[in-house]
Every structure is written in C-alpha cells, then in structure tokens.
Design a protein around this nucleic acid. Structure first.
Length: 285
DNA sequence: AACAGGCACAACCGCTCGAAC
DNA sequence: TGTTCGAGCGGTTGTGCCTGT
C-alpha cells in the first residue's frame, strides 16, 4: 500500500495506531510542523516524524500544512465572485478540485470540494439544477479550455448501430462522456492547420471531454456519442468518431470536437447536461 | 430546554502518478 | 524494465455548531 503509510485502524479521530496520532491537530502540533517547514522547507513530509518527533504521518502533515498552516491562505467564506468562478470552473473541469484551486488564490482544493458538495446536496434536495441557467447556456465562458480533438474533416459517418443489447452488455467498459462548456464564439480558434466548416447561426464550436475506461470494449474500434448529448439548451452535432484504437491509456482524458447548436423549441428549464449516448462500432478507421 | 436535522469543515482513506533506483 | 516510494488528488466520513421545532 502506498497511500496509507501504514496508518492502520479505523477512521475515528484521536486513535493512535502504529504510534502515529490521528484526528484533530492541536496548536502544539501546528507549532512543531511550522517549525519543521521553516527549517527544512516544504516536501519530504515523511521525514517530519523523524526530524521533529511529531507523531503524524507524512500525508497528515502535508494536508495540515496545505489546508491550514501555509502562508497566504484566505480564510472565511467565499465571496460572490469566488462562488461564480467555482461554478464556471466546475462546469468546465468537473470535480478537478486541485485545478480549480489553482484559479482561486489562497483557497484550497479541500475548501472548494466541501463548498461544492454541500452546495450540490442543497440544490439536489431543492430539486434545482446544479448550474444556474446562465451557465447552462454557456454565457460567460471566455475560453475553450480543453485540448483539441480530431479535425472534423477526418470524421466519417458511423456504421449501423450494433445490437440493442450492446450498450447494456459493455456499459462498464465504455467511456463516460462529459460535455465541455460552450466557449465564447469569438475567442475560439481551431487547431493550426485545420479548417472548420462554417458554423450556422446559433451554432458554437466546443468539445466533449471523456475519460477512458481501463480496457477497451472487446470488439469495437470506434465509439460514437448519440446525437442527443445536451448542454443546457444546446445539443451536439450528430454521431461522430470518438477514438480509434489503440485504446488510450487508463485514466487519461481526451476530447472530441463538436458543434453545439441551439435547440429551438427548448424551454428555459432544460435539464443540464443530460447525457444520452450509446456506443457503436466498426472494424476499421 | 431538549432534540433532530442540516451544514460546514477537518481529516482520513484509497488510489494514481512520476521520479529514483 | 520492474519495483519502490513520495507526493498529490478525489471521495468519503466524523464532528461540532447552528437552527428550527
């Protein structure tokens, strides 16, 4: 085990397992840790116990320093500006708390995660959408944050869909799709060397993010999203090539260029990011 | 005043990644 | 090339405070 650092036992605070203390930090422990960082700098957290005698594992020390003791930490509740930024970042990045924290000086990933989880629960209980309507519509996004996917000109129409049981059969092995936000139309630039076909009125370029499962589905070489993938009042263009073999490495994110087009008849209360998709396959790219 | 439920926050755990060897 | 280890990330849980009944 790499992460546990041999700290066994339950999660109840205050217990001592393997000589290492768990639970809330005391002011005296904080002083010891701060003094250690002053002398030796950040990092090398597992050496804290050796050098200072502090009965805490390295992970616990790192967390305490990062979330409470390091300088320039902003305390107190989030400002309205910060809250709006968190909403925007989450709509773009998903649950990437550390990356979100990088955009909020003085805030920690743990803080943002806690804020988001409590906010999410509250809105879910109230039956409200996670994102406010203005973010569902993509208003306010000023950049396209995901990397560029395959050029439109390389896409080919999908073959006939496989048997209806395919999706259910291989569901666990297929990528979960995540709609990226609508970028600002004016700021979007296609990858160099790629010419995109002209966009129609009420159409915006964008990307779909997706994470690959540990192993490829047994038979297909390509996957296609179903056309009803939505973001707010927008839907993406019809099924397109997602990814050819070889299967991408585990845990890597990739993206697919799509065009979002306004759904003309949609009411303002369109559910956010409802993902309807199913895979299809073909034997060669 | 007592209690229950919600909320905010701190801290832990499992897992992954990358560097060093 | 495989293994080990430090570090970091995201999910989850525990605890205390606050508020409504």
């Amino acid at each position: 085990m790499k992460g546990g650092e041999g700290v066994g036992g339950g999660k109840k605070a205050g217990g001592a397992a393997g000589g290492l203390k768990k639970g809330p930090w005391t002011p005296a422990e904080d002083v010891i840790l701060m003094e250690h960082v002053r002398r030796h700098g950040e990092g090398n957290w597992n050496s804290v116990q050796r050098h200072s005698g502090l009965a805490r594992c390295g992970k616990s020390c790192r967390l305490r320093w990062a979330n409470h003791l390091r300088p320039n930490l902003k305390k107190g509740s989030f400002s309205p500006e910060e809250e709006l930024l968190i909403l925007r970042l989450h709509s773009q990045l998903g649950n990437k708390w550390a990356r979100m924290a990088a955009h909020l000086p003085g805030r920690t990933d743990n803080e943002i995660k806690n804020y988001w989880n409590t906010r999410l629960k509250r809105r879910q209980r109230a039956g409200l959408p996670i994102y406010p309507p203005e973010l569902q519509d993509g208003v306010g996004f000023d950049h396209c944050q995901l990397e560029h996917g395959a050029p439109t000109s390389l896409w080919t129409p999908p073959p006939p869909l496989p048997s209806p049981s395919f999706a259910a059969e291989h569901k666990a092995q297929l990528p979960s799709l995540w709609p990226a936000p609508l970028p600002n139309h004016d700021s979007f630039r296609p990858p160099s060397g790629i010419t995109l076909s002209p966009l129609r009125r009420n159409e915006f370029p964008g990307h779909l993010g997706f994470k690959f499962p540990p192993s490829p589905p047994p038979n297909p070489t390509c996957l296609f999203p179903k056309q009803q993938l939505r973001l707010g009042h927008y839907q993406v263009t019809p099924p397109q090539l997602l990814s050819p073999l070889p299967w991408p490495p585990q845990g890597k994110w990739s993206s697919l260029h799509v065009n979002y087009s306004r759904i003309p008849s949609e009411a303002a209360t369109t559910p956010p990011a409802a993902s309807f998709w199913r895979p299809c396959c073909r034997t060669s790219v």
